[in-house]
Design a binder for these strands. Structure first.
Ligand code: FES
Ligand code: FES
Lengths: 161, 161
DNA sequence: TATAAAGTTGACTGTTTTAGTTGGTTAAAT
DNA sequence: ATTTAACCAACTAAAACAGTCAACTTTATA
C-alpha cells in the first residue's frame, strides 16, 4: 500500500478547490501558490482527477478547475483512489496468490486492513473536511496576503468576476 | 505511509515463527522455504526485529529464532513498526509543518488516519492470527511436503530433536 | 484578429525505497 | 575440526516518487 505525498497533495488540492469554489473556476497556479505544490505536479494529478470525473476543467483565460459533484458527494477515498490506483494493503491485489499462486499466510489480515482504511476514508467527504475548525483556520491563514480572504470568498460567491 | 512487502514479510515471518514454535528455534532457512521469502532479505528483517526485542536468536547448529514474548503480547503494529519505522500517514511526522513550517490543510486528517490504522493493527496479536481458521488451513497446506506436519509440530512440542 | 491565460500532453530527470544479492565473519554443537 | 546457522556490510537492479521542461491546444477578451 502506498499513501504518499501524491495522495496527500490530491486531497489537499481538492479541499482547496472546495474552499475557493463559488468564484468560478480555480486555476492550478492559485492552488500551487496557496498550498505550496509544484504547478507541473498538480497538472499530472488533475489529469487523473479529471479522468475519474471528480473535477471538470474550463480552458482559456479565467479558466481553471471546478468540482464535478457536490462537496458532500466526494469523499477522500475517491480522491486517493483516483491518483493512486487503489489503497490496497494486500500484495496480491485481492486475488489471493502471492505464494506462487496460492494464498499466503497473512492474506486475510491485509484484506481486513484494506477495507478498514477504505471505510474510514470513504466516510469523510470534502464537505465534512470544510466543516472542521482546524481546516477553516488553516484556510484563513493561507488567504491572508492573497487577493481575497476566506470570508470574502464565501460572501462573494456567485458574483461574476 | 508505506505498507509494502517489507512489513507484510515481517508479519508473515513472525506468524510462521509462532506457528512452528515449540520445536525449539526456527531457522530462517525454514521460514524462507515455507513462506517463499529470500533468506538474505529475512536476515535483514530479523536484524530489526531482534533490535526491537520481538525475537531472540540462538546461534550455531540447531539454532534459529524464537519469539521473545508470549504470542498474545506481540501485535501486528509492533512488527510493522519494527521494520518500517512507523506507520505514519502524515507528511510531517506529526510535527505539523509541511507548509514551510506551518500546518497544512489536511494535517489532522492524516493524523486521524494514522491512529485509526495503528489502533486496528495493535489490537491484533499473533495469538489472534493463530486462532483464525484461514491461517491454520494455509499453515497446514504449507507443511504438507515438509519434514513435519502442522499437527506434528503441535503434538511434538518440547520434544528435543 | 492578436494576444495572453489557462489547460493538455509527453518526455525527461534526480532521488529514495524496495527487494533483493554477494561474500564474508563469528558462535556453538557434533 | 567441521558444520550449522546467525550476523554483518556492501552492493545492485528496478521501481516509484516528486518534480521539471517544452511544446501544444483551447478560449476569453482587448
Ligand atoms: S496478500 Fe493476498 S495472497 Fe498474499
Ligand atoms: S501532514 Fe502534517 S503539516 Fe502537512
Amino acid at each position: 500500500m502506498r499513501l504518499t505525498t501524491k495522495g496527500r497533495y490530491a486531497v489537499t488540492a481538492m479541499l482547496d478547490l472546495a474552499i475557493h469554489a463559488g468564484n468560478g473556476p480555480v486555476s492550478l497556479a492559485d492552488i500551487s501558490e496557496r498550498q505550496g505544490i509544484s504547478l507541473s505536479y498538480l497538472e499530472q494529478l488533475f489529469a487523473k482527477l479529471r479522468r475519474n470525473e471528480l473535477v471538470r476543467s474550463v480552458r482559456g483565460p479565467g479558466g481553471g478547475y471546478q468540482l464535478n459533484r457536490e462537496q458532500q458527494d466526494i469523499d477522500v477515498a475517491q480522491v486517493i483512489d483516483a491518483v493512486n490506483e487503489s489503497v490496497d494493503a494486500t500484495g496480491c491485489g485481492h486475488t489471493g496468490s502471492c505464494q506462487d499462486g496460492n494464498i499466503c499466510l497473512t492474506h486475510h489480515l491485509w484484506c481486513d486492513l484494506s477495507s478498514q482504511i477504505h471505510d474510514f476514508l470513504s466516510k469523510i467527504s470534502l464537505a465534512d473536511l470544510m466543516a472542521r475548525k482546524d481546516v477553516r483556520s488553516v484556510a484563513e491563514r493561507q488567504n491572508r496576503g492573497h487577493n481575497a480572504s476566506f470570508e470574502d470568498s464565501l460572501i462573494s460567491a456567485k458574483v461574476t468576476v
